[in-house]
Amino acid sequence: MASNENYLILKLSDRKYPIPYNDRERLKKRAEGYTDEPGKIGGWKTSLVTIWKTTKALAIFRGQILAEYEIEDSIKLNREEKKVLLNLKEIKNSKYLDKVLDYKTTNPCSVLNTKNFQYK
């Protein structure tokens, strides 16, 4: 039976930087909103209200769930770019890891309830 919990869905892109599949720390940094480019901060364009609705996040690439995270209490604001940098803690042995989520949205940072999870 599916639980009823909101997740922040973080859609990672390989348009500028490759996905660091085999480097859990770099993957976490990407999910937090940091870039691989020195001096460039990045971040997620979302509201604090959206983040407030969730306590967990899933990092996905082309639907595949790469990691599950707890969203820590502190975040960083990138006021210049109007973006948010998250502080995440990886959940080991996630039941969602490697599943392919069928979630069609162009929004790279959105909220999805587990009752609406559909897999390919």
Rank of each mutant, 00 (worst) to 15 (best):
K95Q: 15
K45L: 09
R30G: 06
V100A: 06
N116H: 14
L101A: 08
T46I: 11
G39S: 04
C109W: 07
L10Q: 13
L48M: 06
R15F: 15
E70Y: 13
L12C: 08
N93R: 12
N4S: 06
V111F: 04
Y103D: 12
E32F: 02
K45W: 02
T114W: 00
Y7M: 10
L58M: 09
S13R: 07
K115C: 06
S13T: 13
E37Y: 11
R15Y: 15
Y17M: 14
I19Q: 11
Y17Q: 11
S94W: 06
Y69C: 06
N6A: 15
I9Q: 14
R15E: 09
T35S: 03
G43A: 03
P108Y: 05
L58W: 13
N87D: 14
R30F: 09
E68H: 01
L12V: 00
T105F: 00
I51E: 00
W52Y: 15
N93S: 13
E90D: 10
N78W: 01
T50R: 08
L27K: 07
A59W: 11
L101Q: 02
S110R: 10
L12F: 07
Y69M: 09
L12W: 09
N107I: 10
S74C: 01
W52T: 07
L112S: 10
C109D: 03
E81S: 04
W44L: 03
I65N: 03
Y103G: 09
L86M: 00
N113R: 13
N4L: 11
A2S: 14
A59H: 03
R24Y: 09
C109G: 05
T106R: 05
T35V: 04
T54W: 02
K99H: 14
S94K: 11
E70D: 15
D73P: 07
K76V: 11
Y119P: 03
